Amino acid sequence: MGHGGNVIDELMSDHREVEEMFGRIQAMSGQGRQLRDLVDQVTIELVRHSVAEEQYLYPAVREHVDGGDRVADKEIEDHSRVEKLLKRLEKTDIGSAEMSPLLQQLMDEVAAHVQDEESNLFPMLRQACTPQQLDDLGDKIRRAKSMAPTRPHPSAPSTPPANKLLAPGVGLVDRARDFVTGRGKS
């Protein structure tokens, strides 16, 4: 992920990318290594996206949008549920009977979150911010995603300043683990 453009264009591109991966998961007839690789890729993308939103998007929502604290808190709560599901998926054997229901629950949670952001949050943000502010946020989101963790860490802080301080270090460790194991390379 890292598509360019303002924050809304960037995040909507991420949404479409994850939806495409979910479509590929649903179309798979079997399990095994190919499914694990795709679940790992979805996890990487969702974690990076969430961390970047928590570092920059939601603080901007709090600052610029009327009722922004309530909106941001709800979005962070959505992320928490998704991250816990991702952690469970990471620990679940691909052949387990639990895998399919967990994947469906993840897809449902993410779809509801995407729908809410695109229908509610993004229009409010577009109205509250200047085009330059949206472009600047897009740049910050892209930088954050490049340094973000790639694995779920449900107990990690989700609000600044702690998340901005810890995420790059955790991201470095995650990317090192991914390099050694080959995770996310397919």
Rank of each mutant, 00 (worst) to 15 (best):
G5Y: 06
V7L: 09
D9W: 02
E10G: 05
L11I: 03
L11K: 05
H15F: 03
H15C: 06
R16V: 07
V18N: 00
E19P: 00
G23H: 01
I25N: 00
Q26E: 15
A27L: 09
G30Y: 10
Q31T: 14
G32Y: 07
Q34A: 15
Q34H: 07
Q34K: 14
L35S: 00
L35C: 04
D37A: 12
L38E: 02
V39S: 10
D40A: 14
Q41E: 13
V42K: 01
T43S: 14
I44H: 04
L46D: 07
R48I: 00
H49S: 01
Y56L: 00
L57W: 05
Y58C: 06
R62E: 15
E63T: 05
E63Y: 01
H64C: 13
H64S: 11
V65K: 08
V65E: 09
V65P: 01
V65W: 06
D66V: 04
G67W: 02
G68K: 11
G68Q: 09
V71D: 10
K74N: 11
E75K: 13
I76T: 12
D78A: 03
H79E: 03
H79L: 06
V82E: 14
V82T: 13
E83H: 15
K84I: 10
L86Y: 04
K87M: 15
R88P: 00
K91E: 15
K91H: 10
D93P: 02
D93K: 09
S96R: 11
S100M: 11
S100C: 00
S100D: 10
P101T: 02
P101C: 07
Q105F: 03
L106D: 04
D108S: 08
A111G: 05
A111I: 00
A112V: 04
H113V: 04
D116N: 02
E117C: 08
E118C: 09
N120A: 02
N120S: 14
F122E: 01
F122S: 06
P123K: 06
M124P: 00
L125E: 05
Q127A: 15
A128S: 15
T130Y: 03
P131C: 09
P131N: 12
Q132T: 08
Q133L: 07
L134W: 11
L134F: 14
D135P: 02
L137K: 07
L137I: 12
G138M: 06
G138T: 03
D139N: 13
R142I: 07
R142C: 04
T150K: 09
S155V: 08
A156D: 05
A156G: 07
S158I: 00
P160G: 05
P160Y: 02
P160K: 06
L165M: 09
L166Y: 04
A167V: 00
A167H: 11
G169T: 08
V170I: 15
V170F: 05
G171C: 00
V173A: 14
F179W: 15
T181N: 13
G182N: 09
R183E: 13
G184R: 04
